[in-house]
């Protein structure tokens, strides 16, 4: 019927980026199951999928009381040894019955929440994308915990190069004419509404994670630039504040790297408008120009200082 998900993204709590082998250890959340790693074009490591059981109210734009039971599928991942994500999603499906079934029924459908009773797909999707009820399905809390698991790993030194808030991206995917809408809400909250042709595949969740990752990169770079107060503070001070961006973020921009070919059109359309990559590029240029200006000033001071 539809799929709901939420991705949380944050800075890995470690002084430097961590190597692939440490990624594997940190993400080893389930015994007997391998951490999957891909190395091209950027190291991406993902934990095995884990399930969380829920039985609760589902969001509804019309405020109807809709109950669903089943499991949510979650995972943690690390990109470039630097950015960590906690991601959860579940497929919402109609159930054959109005009664809560024995739990084994739901475990036979991992990653599915069945609605008990009648429901309109649109009502659910609108409800989830807007402001879900506090006592309703809370994918965000689950994703936040999958992010915590990584951040609290004893293998990390917790001396992150800068402080930065996590961002959350809540997404809903439905079947129909292909479309995507990306909305910025508060400083940390984003929503994506996506319509795909044909059946849902986990590749849609991958796409949303990739969007969340790049949106976080943009957000983080904007914060760092704001903190540097270019023009408002002396050049060297601004340069020092920009340095973490160069050291830790600029090389991570790889839109669509892990996105299925079938879905890359979504990225392309978002890149046309609002133009994520364009904004990123202009910020990167700004950081680099600033550092270049600072370096020049520094060199001039060094050589000219002696002559004067």
């Amino acid at each position: 019927m539809l799929v709901m998900g939420e991705v949380h993204t944050g800075l890995l709590q470690n002084s430097g980026e961590i190597p692939e082998s440490t990624c594997r250890d940190v993400l080893q959340l389930l015994s007997g199951e391998r951490v999957r790693v891909s190395r091209r074009p950027i190291v991406y490591a993902v934990s095995p999928d884990l399930l969380t059981g829920v039985d609760c109210r589902l969001p509804s734009a019309s405020q109807s009381r809709i109950r669903g039971a089943g499991t949510v599928l979650s995972r943690s991942s690390i990109t470039g040894g630097r950015v960590v994500q906690g991601s959860s999603f579940t497929r919402i499906e109609r159930s054959g019955s109005d009664r809560r079934q024995p739990w084994s029924h739901y475990l036979a459908r991992p990653g599915v929440v069945e609605v008990l009773g009648k429901v309109k797909s649109r009502d659910l999707a609108d409800g989830f994308a807007e402001d879900p009820p506090a006592d309703g399905l809370d994918l965000g809390a689950i994703s936040a915990r999958f992010l915590d698991v990584v951040q609290s790993s004893p293998l990390l030194d917790r001396r992150a190069p800068f402080k930065i808030a996590r961002t959350r991206l809540r997404w809903v995917a439905e079947e129909g004419e292909p479309a995507i809408r990306f909305t910025l809400h508060s400083e940390q909250m984003r929503t994506v509404r996506l319509v795909h042709t044909g059946e849902f595949t986990p590749a849609v969740a991958d796409l949303c994670e990739d969007l969340a990752l790049h949106d976080w990169l943009l957000t983080a770079l904007l914060v760092i630039i704001e903190r540097a107060r270019i023009g408002g503070t002396p050049g060297p001070e601004a340069a020092v504040k920009l340095a973490p961006a160069v050291d830790h973020l600029l090389h991570l921009w790889m839109p669509s790297a892990r996105v299925d070919d079938v879905l890359s059109a979504y990225w392309e359309s978002l890149d046309r408008r609002p133009g994520f990559t364009r904004q990123w590029q202009s910020l990167v240029d700004r950081v680099r120009d600033q550092l270049a200006v600072h370096t020049l000033a520094f060199l001039r001071e060094k050589s000219g200082g002696g002559a004067r």
Binding site: T52, V54, C56, A69, G136, I142
Partner: peptide, 24 residues
């Protein structure tokens, strides 16, 4: 450790009003 393997795969049967906000 087969027993450990199975223990790790337990997904608790959630009582009503389990919405994910708290760990099981």
């Amino acid at each position: 450790e087969l027993a450990r393997l199975v223990e790790d795969r337990l997904v608790n049967d959630p009582p009503p009003d389990t919405n994910g906000s708290r760990p099981p």
